[in-house]
Structure formats: structure tokens, C-alpha cells
Design a protein around this nucleic acid. Sequence first.
RNA 1: GUGGCUGUAGCUCAGUUGGUUAGAGCGGUUGAUUGUGGAUCAACAGGUCGAGGGUUCAAGUCCCUUUAGCCACCCCA
Length: 443
Amino acid sequence: MAKPKIEPRLPKGMRDFLPGDMLKRDYVFGVVRDVFHLYGFEPLQTPVLELYETLMGKYGEDAEKLIFRAQHPGGKEELALRYDLTVPLARVVGQYQNEIVLPFRRYQMSPVWRGERPQKGRYREFYQCDMDIAGAVGQDADAEIVSLVATALRRLGFTRFSVNLNNRKLLTAVGVYAGVDGAALSELYRSIDKFDKIGADGVRDELIRRGLSAEVVEKIMRLITLELPRDEKLDFLDEMMGEIPIAREGINELRQLQTHLRQLNIPDENYGFDFTMVRGLGYYTGPIFEAIIPDGGVGSVAGGGRYDDLVGLFRGETIPTTGGSLGIERIIDVVEQFGLFPDHIAGTVVQTLVTVFDNSTRSESVALAGELRAGDVRTELYLQDKPIGKQIGYADKKGVLIVALLGADEIANGVVKFKRLKDGTEITVPRAEAVQAVKKLLQ
RNA sequence: GUGGCUGUAGCUCAGUUGGUUAGAGCGGUUGAUUGUGGAUCAACAGGUCGAGGGUUCAAGUCCCUUUAGCCACCCCA
């Protein structure tokens, strides 16, 4: 074999999805899309490229170093690949004030790009599945998002999962309670967020290392590591911090959220409170959530929360907004890991391969393929000149369920023979009944 | 940005304290079998051993540099 002139390879952190992968991905995207529609969310698509200035100043300094710049020679606009779907949404809500009626529910399933060092489960191009409601203040809106996430996970076949709830306002209150604010507060969040990874002792050590007094650290630890039944956690927080206005606000919001989730019939075991859960993005202002699948080994599979100030950056007024994102790449991994793909997601879309015996029968095979397609049978016509055994072998390797055999004998008798490969069943039927016969064999 | 591991056939990988012509499995092609696949058997094709430099009589193997990939940290989905 001659060495190819160009070595085939991908840019760092990019992936190809071969047909077998795509069929699985399309299935997951399809389930999720149906759930979006079920909850009344409308599709939105925005360009891959945004003006650089649209993206700047939204994600924080570190994140912005990861934004891909995009330019063509002589280009006058400063362009960049979108970093997420939330900022484009905010731009859209600011830009189409005549067309968009609030509250605006939209979803978007699209790739985003980040110039990070790739590693397991992290790529430079990956899909996000975002749903957001712009222009809704109440916790009924937050509950819609959480409920949607729970429904999507259920429909994908997960039963044991938990949506963990917290509130940015409570985290702020913890800071007040502990006498920490400003930059030290975000450091504090960062440490608390590591709770899952390094445990209570690890967090305690880190907080002390950050210069907090032992007394303050103990106060914080007691608050965030509550080992209480869910329904008592908020009461306890209320007792401890109820005097702090922002805490009272946060607690009330979570109470309302919980009430709405009950009304929406979300099973009790599928949500709970976790006051160590922080969420990275800086723009959250109210209730936040993260969905975890036990034993999934991938961290959270969905997350989101309320961010009341972001959209206002693109519009003269504040538009309270809440939303979330399904970690679709991780979800696909876990669906695979748990074996939750339905049987009909096979390695091919082809239901029937029409074989060609030789050039004298080719036109009849072509005609048969046309007839099967007219009958809505997904049909591939064999395109090379090879022995019939090779053609059947090709179908078998590819995972095609049925082959159509149409030789001189069959043509002379006006019939066609179908063979189901998994069990070798063969039936011969008149041409007029071909579609019917295939559909029967497929069952 | 920091650290660790790994680069040998299309893919997954062996390759001994340095020693003659670098191997296996899978995959590919052809045939045993010109109207019937999976199994088996046989044959064939396919390699500047990531790149560059060094040590040595001799380097896939040892040393240095470099590059790419993977993993962990940071951060995040």
C-alpha cells in the first residue's frame, strides 16, 4: 500500500463520529428533543461564530483565554467560536425584542468550542443541550427546568438519579455567617465545591490553610454537612441563619422550588439538597442544581440555575432567567455504560440489502430496490461486482438484517427471495408482495 | 500552565542483560466454495520501530532533545 500523501488526523481535542456512534447519539438527542417539546421549549439556532466582543467579559479571565479566535485573511470583524450557548441566548433575547415574547422558553443543542487541554471526557469541541426560560422570576420556572431534566433522564432509562439543589444566596449567606466576603468568598466556594473530591476533612484543612479561623471553619462545616432528612435541612438552616436576609431569601426560594417539584410529581428520591454544591459559573444568582447518576462515574450529567443579570447585559433592563444544561456527552457515555440503548439502535440504518447476481439481472435488482423504497423499506443496492457469497457477507458484517436475492430463476417466475441473516429464514414471494414480506421478516 | 505514562503493521499490542532478515492477534485481499454469510484452513499484501542527535563493533532496546497522544492536577461539561 502506498503511503498516503496526507496523514489523516484530527486537530487536538476533536472527534469524528462514525455511523455506529452517530446512530446512538441521534437516539439520545432525539429523546432529549422530544422532552424539550413536551415542556413547550422552542428550538433556537445561532451561528458558530460570534463577534469577539459579544463573548468577552462574560466568563471570567481564565475562561476567556480558552476562547477560539476565528479569522480569515483580511477579515475586518473580530470573530470567535462560541464558548457556550447561554451568552448567545442572552444576545438573542437582547436583539429581537420585537419578535420574542417573554417569557421565552428555548432549547439549543449545538457544539461549542474551548481551547482546553483535552483529557478523559473533555474535548475542545463538544455539544451542549441548553434549555432556558427568559423573563420569569418565580420558582415555578426553576421547577420547570429541574422537572424537565428529571423527565429526560427517566426517558433515557435512568431511575436512580438525584438532582441536587442549592442556592447561590445561601452560599453568600454562609460567607456572611462566617465573616468572609469579596475575593475570599469565591475562594471559599471553590474549597466547598471540592467536598465530593476531598471530603469534609479535606475541605476543613483547605479552609484553614486559606487563613480562616478554626472557629469560622467549624461554623461553615456544620452548615454545609448537615446529616438530616431532607425536609429538616431547610428548617435547620433557617434556625441557624434565618436572621441573615439573604439566607432567608434563599431558603424561601428553595422551599417554593420544592413545593413546585411536588406539584409536578417529581419522585422524592430524585431530588434533594446539597449545600456543598457550588457550580462553577460566576453568573448564577439564585437556585442552582446538579444532576448525579450514582455509579455513572462521570460527575454531574446536568446542571444549571438562575442567572438574573446576564441577559440584562444585552438589553437595557434586567430579564430574570433560569435554565440548565444536559451534559449530553456524559449522558451518552452513561447510557452506553448502563446498556440503555434500545435494540433497534443497530450499527446501520439499512434494513435490506438488494444483491445483484450479474449484469444481466442488475436492472431487475435496481427496480426491486426502487419498489422497496417506495414501500418505505430502508434499502441499499449492492454496488460492486462480486460473488453472491461476498454480498451476503458484506450485509452480515454491516449488520443488515435482510438480503434480497433476485437471480434468473426468481426473475423468470416473477418472485423474489428474502433471507433473514440472523436465523437463515428464507421466503420466496411474488414481487408485488415484496414490501409486505420484508416488513414481516423485520418483526 | 504543572506533573506522570506511552509512541513498533490499518487497529490492539509483544519484542529478553543492546546481537544476524522486527513478530502475534484482529482487520484487509485472494482461494478452498462461480446461487447463499458468520466457522475453519491456506496464501498474500502491509513497517524509514514518532522525529532529530548521541553512546557502541552493533540500538526497536541505552542517553539527550523534540514532537504527538493519553492520564492526573488547575479549571470545567
